[in-house]
Design a binder for these strands. Structure first.
Ligand SMILES: NC(=O)c1ccc[n+]([C@@H]2O[C@H](COP(=O)([O-])OP(=O)(O)OC[C@H]3O[C@@H](n4cnc5c(N)ncnc54)[C@H](O)[C@@H]3O)[C@@H](O)[C@H]2O)c1
Ligand SMILES: NC(=O)c1ccc[n+]([C@@H]2O[C@H](COP(=O)([O-])OP(=O)(O)OC[C@H]3O[C@@H](n4cnc5c(N)ncnc54)[C@H](O)[C@@H]3O)[C@@H](O)[C@H]2O)c1
Lengths: 210, 210
DNA sequence: AGTAGATTGTTAAAAAATTAACGCTGTCAA
DNA sequence: TTGACAGCGTTAATTTTTTAACAATCTACT
């Protein structure tokens, strides 16, 4: 029911609000947040309807309070448990980044089929054999899987994750995994982003917005 | 004028068509491609209007020919020249991936501010000081920049790229760079994708589609 | 106290994207 | 040869998303 695009923006707002708080700001107006997010202020107010708003006319939003509302909406009670399948270049980069930083995104395990990686601790995270995925997913209560294996392995791995009980997948392999009932799949296609940027670098006039 | 979403899908179609050709298939119907892309067949036909179509009723699309049309639409005459700023975990992963693979995406240079990386050859690609960016961008005729520096450096780096003559930016730092006239910017926010997946793993019922 | 001005939450309008509809064309089997 | 599909390209309808509008509310200043 909540539009996916709105969820995406709310995730962004969370970081914007966090940065504003870090910079010492105590409150902000919808148009200030809009500027930082690159959207219209009416979009901000509209999106905020989903999270239970708490702004005050002429005083804007109390940022501390707003962050509480956003996080309450976006996150559950406990942190979300992730796993990464494929500890190659991309998998490692993601692991390094989120291990260090995020309290709501917890990477509980990584899986690879390379025997040399088995049981190694990478960035503080244990690497298991992909064959043990189902067991570990259940044991560690992992709900979200990140797929960073070569494209020809992606479908197979997705099936393994789903069989293990994963509810949600972020797939970086350049093959769209088809969605099924009771499953959320986000296909993140980096090649597409580069090609899109290349296209518009040559066809700026075809760009509607701005 | 061409919708951004359509460009995104056309990039995807290119890979799907490539895979079909690799698998030995010679032609395909819109509904077959649709299945693989996770869209409706009418979307396929609608999108194909932008690229100059060549399908035949009852025989579908000749894949060889279709690929030609897609690539003609998506790519210019020459390959596109990219640079990456920030050769950390993510920058290196991207470099490794696209260096190896793509003939239309050529990474001409990478930039970092770390003196230890200066003039080193990484994945066959020379690393320059960010201070020389403007010069190298012009010399190598680079049109697209990939930003993979820490978030607090992203705006600065974007300005350097734009000053150097870059037309198009793919930004991986989690701060939206605001778009200006005559510039294409794609903000790719990986944290957002993970948070979105986490949200829907807990709120599958709020998912409209499927 | 009262008024001007600014910002919110919400509803309505507009714009954009997706999906369906349908005429037309080509294929194939009777 | 003809008729019944099947699928394309295009246009129209529908749905979704974004943007604008505006009454209600609060602040601040006179
Ligand atoms: N690196 C990038 O910038 C980039 C860009 C676009 C797309 N991608 C996609 O992301 C994925 C990963 O890319 P990468 O550059 O990290 O590749 P990589 O080759 O560096 O790493 C792949 C890893 O997956 C492991 N693996 C292979 N099969 C497996 C299986 N069945 N189960 C578990 N692990 C398995 C391999 O052992 C390896 O460690 C690929 O699908 C690639 O197309 C990456
Ligand atoms: N790695 C991930 O999976 C991931 C996920 C989400 C977001 N990001 C974002 O991507 C960006 C890069 O992430 P990373 O993990 O590769 O970080 P990293 O710290 O590994 O690498 C950053 C690199 O940028 C270089 N650098 C810093 N300032 C620079 C400047 N002014 N000019 C040129 N080079 C400069 C550093 O020397 C370093 O090599 C960050 O903004 C991060 O927030 C990364």
């Amino acid at each position: 029911m909540t539009p996916k695009k709105t969820i995406e923006r709310i995730s962004l707002y969370r970081r914007i609000v966090g940065n504003l708080l870090l910079s010492g700001k105590k409150q902000a107006f919808s148009h200030e947040i809009a500027k930082l997010a690159g959207v219209k202020s009416s979009q901000i107010r509209h999106d905020f309807m989903f999270i239970g708003t708490n702004g005050r006319a002429n005083a804007g939003y109390d940022l501390q309070e707003l962050r509480g509302h956003i996080e309450g909406f976006l996150f559950g009670g406990d942190a979300d448990n992730f796993c990464i399948v494929g500890v190659g270049n991309l998998g490692r980069a993601i692991l390094a980044f989120f291990r260090a930083r995020h309290k709501n995104i917890v990477i509980k395990a990584v899986f690879d089929k390379d025997p040399a990686l088995k049981d190694r601790i990478i960035q503080g995270c244990r690497c298991y054999s992909i064959d043990d995925a189902s067991e570990i997913i259940k044991k560690e209560n992992i709900n979200i899987g990140i797929i960073a294996v070569p494209v020809e392995q992606a479908k197979l791995v997705a099936q393994i994750l789903v069989d293990g009980g994963i509810k949600s997948i972020v797939n970086f392999a350049p093959v769209p995994l088809n969605v099924r009932q009771g499953l959320f799949i986000e296909n993140v296609d980096l090649t597409m982003y580069l090609e899109k940027a290349a296209f518009f670098s040559r066809n700026l006039s075809k760009l509607s917005e701005v």
